[in-house]
Write a protein that binds this DNA or RNA. Sequence first.
DNA 1: TTTAAATATTTTGTCGATATTATTGTGAAT
DNA 2: ATTCACAATAATATCGACAAAATATTTAAA
Lengths: 243, 243
Amino acid sequence: MILPKPDESTLMTTSLPSADQAPKTMTDYVYGQLREDIIQGKLIPDSKLKIEHLRGEYKVGATPLREALSRLSSDGFVITEGQRGFRVSPTSAADLDDVTELRIMLELKALKSSLLHGGDDWESRVVATYYQLSKVEELDLFENLAVWEQRNHDFHWALISACTSKWLLHFYNILYDQHKRYRNISLIANLGKRDVHDEHQRIYAAALARDVETACRETEQHIRLTAGITHQVLQELAKEKTA
Amino acid sequence: MILPKPDESTLMTTSLPSADQAPKTMTDYVYGQLREDIIQGKLIPDSKLKIEHLRGEYKVGATPLREALSRLSSDGFVITEGQRGFRVSPTSAADLDDVTELRIMLELKALKSSLLHGGDDWESRVVATYYQLSKVEELDLFENLAVWEQRNHDFHWALISACTSKWLLHFYNILYDQHKRYRNISLIANLGKRDVHDEHQRIYAAALARDVETACRETEQHIRLTAGITHQVLQELAKEKTA
DNA sequence: TTTAAATATTTTGTCGATATTATTGTGAAT
DNA sequence: ATTCACAATAATATCGACAAAATATTTAAA
């Protein structure tokens, strides 16, 4: 078993997502890989996930693979039917709307709780992640997409990290990544048409001022904008296919 | 492989919970068993789940077992740590509150959507499940706990079954069962102190009248009452332990 | 040519065995 | 006694192989 340096690893983690828990086990490793490849769209929606093929692709045995796929199925990234193996969960405009609405509800609730309970450590995290995000947003985004993605996630996570509900954060994590799946389709269109940094700045200011009302409003608008543009791109792609 | 008659089976099912999807595979079978045994408290919180032992208990191989446990870990019923196997998720008063608050939020949202979108088929389901529930609530509940449990679930599910959000229903299912875990501790205390049928009747009437406001208010009160009594029993048990 | 039955191939789900890692138990040294 | 090192034991995670099931292909009939 050749694996990177070991580290803590629990389900429903409350730690920052950038703390990229180095996997202790083959299952954990391939779980992370598969999840990431699904989110990145490298494994295309509704395509079949054949064990033998994946075995060669990720250099792991069948057992850890099946375990990882089982987990992913409960996360909603993979669907499994009777004796017909696994496949990547399909995507659709309807599902995007579904994910978006629920994510808004959960994120706003988490944000509110976080603003009410966050202490000095929370403030520090918000300031630090905002600073790092700002740095990369001054550069050419198109050349630093991966870094921006990471820091964007870190910032949003820091904002809600003081939320007291473990379950809320757990579900939020799933929906955030589901949403990311769609957003990746339209990332370029998204970043081109907006002043994302300005949106972040406003959320940041409201959060530190503990202005729940404003922070929630700005966050909701922020998410809806992304989802809206993604929805457009998705429909354009659908039209191209039929035409 | 000796398994019951086959049937459809997909994750994130939108069908009634009583439609007890007969498992096609060993993994599905043992997944259901383990889940039920955790909910029923037969597998006690925080206890270790040793593969060899479970293998004998449920008469299945190690691979399906590990797959089922992997799924359950993403569902939050089981926790898995690095190279230290699986254990039943621990319970706590804080977790009960967490589950309760989130469940209320999700169930009310789902109920609202359902009342807005439900058609004739939805109405039929509500009427039918309410009728069956009423029948058993006229009998001695203590002698029909299992049946009551099932019909109570069916009724609540029917109410929200016209909700258009698949994700909302998926998360609701998880939280409902998590809540059931706690409720089982105090079921007797709960049924003794209340007129549950009256509460159900009021929700029923408001739902059919499409009175979103009232239906939500009654449902919230209904859940809070259960959770409150469960909380009490939980604390009493904790005191007994220290005393 | 289409439809249907029969056969061949692929793929899934499962088991038993094994190497690796954690845990427990034992005895020596502080 | 308590702590530490080290051996003995137990449990986990993984692999390779195989039977059952689904899928693809061929062959025969309408």
